[in-house]
């Protein structure tokens, strides 16, 4: 149960400072060192590669079609216009309907919010039971759960269609929420289990002596202590569920398609003139939510990734 060292960065940083103080031969003048120039150049080139698509996306979305056909994709627009963004949001066509991405946006919200709440509620209780209230066989279920997270979704798709159909929810928002809750369970359970297990057991013993039970300890002691890990889970789930495509296509039904599915339908419809600017505006709008969360959450997002590599 060793969490990757990312979370202990502060100590490591000081350790590194200590290491850099060590004298090691003649100290080079730091900023003219050719090695460092190469280092920064390589990093700069890498940064350009990673930023290029974002740049192209934004530039294209603000150009007119004639300008796109004439010019090159890197050049900035001659005059900036946001009308394509408005069109993408309000009236872009996805096959049959021309109601724009806003429909998909609200569907994605309606899918993401309950899925995030449900999956975290269930997984945190799982993690709690698995870390502090182990029962006979609990580790077996946990192992299957983790194993299950590696099974390709395709393997379980059709049976899940049957199950959701039997439950009478296939083709509705509830079906997508149901499926997201299931497939969010392994990683989230792992996340919570490892976090709760790292808390001092004396704390729980003390609470038990005072008469607190399973739920009492969970709500009064663990949750208030675990706000950061809940943040990590929320961020992980929002980006993951927002970016989902497969479950949205299969389980939501045409009226409830999430934003990613709608984006794909807008861009890859074969009818009519390809409006590259509207396509790119749609892409930005679809990517905007996870991107904002990424930028705002920074540290938590990275911790979520590291959690994916936690060894249980």
């Amino acid at each position: 149960m060793s969490v990757l060292a990312y979370e202990s960065t502060p100590e490591k940083a000081t350790a590194k400072k200590a290491r850099s103080v060590e004298p090691s031969g003649s100290r080079p003048t730091r900023y003219l060192d050719p090695g460092r120039i190469i280092l920064y150049s390589v990093l700069f080139v890498a940064a350009v590669y990673y930023l290029l698509p974002l740049y192209v996306m934004v530039m294209t979305s603000m150009k007119g079609l004639p300008e796109i056909r004439m010019g090159n994709i890197f050049s900035p627009p001659m005059e900036i216009t946001f009308q394509h963004w408005v069109k993408a949001w309000d009236s872009a066509c996805t096959g049959l309907y021309c109601e724009g991405l806003k429909v998909g946006f609200w569907n994605s919200v309606k899918i993401t919010v309950p899925s995030v709440i449900m999956s975290i509620a269930i997984a945190s209780v799982n993690g709690y039971a698995l870390s502090h209230w182990r029962f006979k066989g609990s580790e077996v279920f946990f192992t299957i759960l983790i194993f299950g997270s590696f099974i390709p979704y395709q393997v379980m798709l059709y049976p899940l269609v049957i199950i959701t159909r039997e439950l009478g929810i296939f083709g509705s928002l509830s079906a997508v929420v149901f499926v997201h809750t299931i497939f969010g369970m392994p990683i989230l359970t792992l996340l919570f289990r490892n976090y709760f297990a790292s808390l001092p057991p004396e704390l729980l013993s003390a609470a038990r002596v005072d008469g607190a039970g399973f739920w009492g300890i969970f709500f009064k002691i663990l949750i208030p202590m675990s706000v950061p890990i809940f943040m990590v889970a929320v961020i992980m789930q929002i980006t993951g569920i927002w970016n989902d495509f497969l479950f949205g296509t299969i389980f939501a039904g045409i009226k409830n398609f999430p934003m990613t599915v709608q984006l794909n339908n807008i861009v890859n419809t074969t009818q009519g003139v390809k409006e590259y600017n509207v396509n790119m505006a749609s892409t930005i709008l679809t990517g905007a939510v996870p991107l904002c969360i990424y930028v705002l959450s920074g540290k938590y997002f990275v911790r979520g990734i590291a959690a994916g590599a936690v060894k249980g």
Partner: peptide, 10 residues
């Protein structure tokens, strides 16, 4: 890291 926050569709 930012591309990792975006979906495969985007």
């Amino acid at each position: 890291l930012y591309p990792f926050a975006l979906s495969f569709i985007v």
